[in-house]
Design a binder for these strands. Structure first.
Lengths: 334, 334
DNA sequence: ATCTTAAATGCAAACGTTTGCAAAACTTTT
DNA sequence: AAAAGTTTTGCAAACGTTTGCATTTAAGAT
């Protein structure tokens, strides 16, 4: 009993004694083909462990079977791809796409001119694009989004912009963080993070809103860059210069991590002297010393939403931006 | 002056008044076509910003233009994809592949049976496969590697196995770590990590070799799992039970991170009471409190080597496994 | 038995490329 | 000016699918 591998519909059609068309239809469960024929062909396909040529199919169907996931590395070139939050998001995206039989084409882009997205979209390598993080490329994205529907962005939904976004409510997240510190009776709050990043700007706005409502003095902002060294240096310097804050809201867990270190190096204790609230709840957040109280973004849900929206757009349907609610995760740092 | 987008060789051939074949050859710099013709066609292609249909080309050439990057999630299901080391490696792989015009197809696999790799390879979706981490799937990999050449593995090169590997010299890394602690006069060393993971086993062996050579008592091993909680709990328990070690070599930075926390929670100081050496030098290693002394694996070089070897294999050439030398990075923890 | 309708199958084109081979267009040699 | 060579171009097939349309086969109605 020979069980040669059948590697094309033609092979299979020869084995079954029917035409290629019939085989194609049978495997696709097309009701046009008789049940008996269909079963026979499927059985044969199993026996000869037939795997359809995906490239040929996609070619014929004029699609690619892949979705591009792009990380624009705008202001913080080194940081992005290794950022645990983005990685977690990508992992979840890979899963969500795999569920639909699509592949994930990973691409990181350092925007050199404002044509990079257009070029990528027109390269025909993907059926849709997911951009992870708006970076400083909102306007570039907006331009392309105007004429290219299957494009989803992880980031902030900004009034007046039409790009389809999925993101957590950064304002609310910032508010939650500040409110938590305020509720502990802390009064000298500082926000660490670069407000030029749109996500961070929203978090900062929420932070300020909470402070305003509580009626304590306006908090300071330390416009730190996202890189590790920058965050550390910023906090370190701040602690030396200024009256010490009793609470820090960091724009990301990575920044918080470095704030923890700067505070420790300055001889202060967390959370006794200074409380720290992070943002993202990346997997190392519970492993820091002390473990980080932080604002959790649900990246599994986020990834699913993005993929959902993307396929709706690919199918030509309407879809609206989604905002996910962040939650406060209590650990030891605040 | 109309500048419609030309979307196929046919479009372009109509514009240039030559045949499709000539256009194809011209764009490929085939010397068969006259220089003047070639220049004209190339100019036209630029003007109408022609992008060749990659799918069609790959289909015709019977290749996919993609390389699969697989993360087998054997013993440590949750840990892998978010592990900063793997992510860094993947990022570098994406770059190295992009340089060669290849795409990266990300796939994470939870091995349910021993057919997963065979199925993936035979799916025809990729021209080659890079497996990141052997996990507990060495034998599965070995079976497929016997008949499928374009397969490269990040991991340990084990005598008797023929799979083509790129990896850092884990034995040497473990030795370096232990030696560093011994050179500080520390005498009670402990290794934290699960030796069932092949990479970790080699690191442990190097660790033991250094101890044997120094003539101090044999170090203890704490076969911790890689997950955060497990590592923390293991070290915490150990510190309570036993005479405290004065040096810990962790099998990874993530483990080291948790060791730091366990030590701090136990009321001991790093490095004064217990020194800690990590492994990998992931990006958070310099951001912990205190920053980690660790063994660096050069993932950029590693990724390039893997891609190099892969393309040699795809081209049908011979290639041999590569072992990279790890280096000790001195920071504050040891 | 013949005609009509329905169900099942097959034919052939198309997707956009690359490439072996044949043909055409130039060059050089005689 | 024809023959022989050389360079340049074009024809057509092929890669493995899917699918509109035509055709065959089976079933039902008269």
């Amino acid at each position: 009993m020979k069980r040669q591998k059948a590697s094309s519909l033609a092979d299979l059609s020869a084995l079954a004694g029917v035409s290629i068309s019939t085989v194609s239809r049978a495997l696709a469960d097309n009701p046009l083909v008789a049940v008996a024929t269909r079963d026979k062909i499927k059985q044969l396909a199993r026996e000869h462990d037939f795997q359809i040529n995906v490239a040929a199919r996609n070619f014929r169907l004029q699609r690619t079977g892949a979705v591009g996931v792009i990380l624009p590395l705008g202001h913080e070139t080194e940081q992005h791809l290794t950022d645990p939050f983005f990685m977690s998001l990508i992992a979840s995206l890979a899963d969500a796409l795999a569920d639909r039989g699509y592949d994930l084409l990973l691409s990181r882009v350092i925007p050199s001119n404002d044509q990079w997205l257009k070029a990528f979209v027109e390269s025909g390598k993907v059926d849709g694009v997911i951009i992870v993080g708006q970076s400083d490329q909102i306007d570039v994205i907006e331009t392309v989004a105007a004429s290219y529907a299957p494009l989803i962005v992880w980031g902030a939904s900004i009034p007046g912009y039409r790009q389809l976004t999925v993101g957590s409510d950064n304002f609310e997240g910032g508010r939650l963080a500040a409110q938590h510190l305020l509720s502990q009776g802390r009064k000298r709050l500082t926000f660490v993070g670069n407000p030029a990043v749109p996500e961070f700007a929203a978090r900062f706005a929420g932070f300020n809103a909470a402070i305003a409502q509580a009626g304590v003095p306006q908090g300071a902002v330390l416009p730190s860059h996202v890189t590790a060294e920058a965050a550390y240096a910023t906090v370190r310097t701040y602690l030396k210069e200024d009256a010490a804050p009793d609470g820090i809201v960091a724009a990301s867990d990575v920044i918080a991590l470095n704030a923890l270190r700067a505070i420790a190096d300055h001889g202060l204790r967390v959370p006794d002297d200074v409380a720290v609230v992070g943002y993202d709840d990346v997997f190392i957040a519970e492993q820091t010393t002390p473990p980080l109280t932080t604002i959790r973004q649900n990246f599994v849900l986020g990834a699913q939403m993005m993929v959902d929206l993307l396929f709706r757009r690919i199918a030509g349907e309407e879809a609206a931006s989604v905002s996910l609610q962040p939650t406060l995760v209590l650990r030891a740092s605040a």
